[in-house]
Computed example of a mutant assay.
Amino acid sequence: MNGLIIAIVVVVILVILGLWLAAMYNSLVRLRNLVQESWRQIDVELHRRHDLIPNLVETVKGYAAHEKEVFEEVARARSAAAAPGSSPAEQAQQENQLTQALGRLFAVAENYPVLRASENFQQLQTELTTTEDRIAAARRFYNANVRELNTKIESFPSNIIAGMFHFERAEYFEADEPEVRQAPQVQF
């Protein structure tokens, strides 16, 4: 009789351990998928930003055709930022360069009062600002999910399951320089 009770207790403990292992594994999978989904949202907003930039450049070009160097810089930065296959850290660096180039483009636009008054330019500027705000919100959501996943991967006892099933830490999407940590502010 004692052997039967011990066997039942062992089976119950193994079942509970198995259920706990499955629950921990599933929570890690859920967090990993949430991080991937939130990265896709950033990607959508970055594509929207990249699609707006050529229109903005063309609008400014019509008024400031002799500012060729600025236009080329924006085009190079946009091409680098729009290139697929970048890690979050690489994408952040490329987006920082694009933001700096856009800042120089807006500085050029400031020298042309007729351009600043242009309805098309104002609309593009508003859309770009809205997109920058959406990117910032998506970045906050993504980074919160990355933080949660990384904490789970590093915390005991879930770090054991994460190690067994090769879950890896995710990268944050961060701006490197203080001046690019905000959406471009242009006042006309």
Rank of each mutant, 00 (worst) to 15 (best):
A92P: 09
R116L: 13
Q94Y: 08
E171W: 02
A83K: 07
A75L: 03
L56W: 13
I6S: 12
W20F: 07
I5Y: 15
T151A: 07
K68W: 01
L128D: 09
A107C: 05
A170K: 00
E110S: 12
I42M: 01
F173C: 01
P88W: 02
Q94G: 03
S38D: 02
I160W: 06
L128M: 11
I8T: 09
R30K: 15
N159C: 13
Y172G: 00
N111G: 05
D133K: 09
R48P: 04
Q97I: 15
F188G: 07
N120S: 11
M164G: 13
V60Q: 09
A81D: 10
V74H: 04
G62M: 10
R169D: 06
V70D: 10
V12E: 07
N55F: 09
V186A: 06
E154I: 01
N111T: 04
R140T: 07
L34D: 03
Q91W: 08
P113Y: 06
D43T: 00
Y112Q: 01
Q185K: 12
F141I: 05
T130F: 11
P84L: 05
D176Y: 06
L149T: 00
R48L: 09
Q187T: 14
E171A: 04
L149V: 00
A109D: 10
L17R: 03
Y112W: 04
M24N: 13
R48K: 09
R104N: 03
F188R: 09
A136P: 12
L98S: 10
M24S: 15
L52P: 13
F165Y: 11
R169I: 08
Q93E: 14
A101R: 00
G3C: 10
I5T: 14
E168I: 04
H47S: 07
V74M: 05
V57A: 12
V74T: 03
L31V: 00
A80P: 07
E95P: 11
F106I: 08
Q94S: 10
Q123W: 07
Q94V: 05
V10F: 08
Y142I: 00
Q100R: 15
V15Q: 11
I160C: 03
A64R: 14
V60P: 09
E179F: 06
G18V: 04
V60H: 08
R104I: 00
E45F: 01
E69M: 02
G18L: 04
V35G: 01
V74S: 05
G163P: 08
H50A: 14
Q123K: 12
Q182F: 12
A138L: 03
W20K: 08
Y112P: 01
A83E: 15
T129C: 03
E177D: 11
I13R: 06
V186G: 03
A138E: 02
S79E: 13
A109Q: 07
V29I: 14
T130E: 15
A170I: 00
Q41L: 01
D43E: 10
H47L: 04
E171Y: 07
Q122A: 11
A65D: 07
A22I: 15
I16D: 04
E58C: 05
V15K: 10
K61D: 08
R78A: 12
H66E: 04
E69K: 04
P157D: 13
E119F: 02
R140G: 05
I53R: 14
A81H: 12
Q122Y: 10
G18C: 03
A137R: 09
F141R: 05
H47N: 08
A81W: 14
P113V: 06
V12L: 13
A80Y: 08
H66S: 02
Q182L: 09
G3W: 11
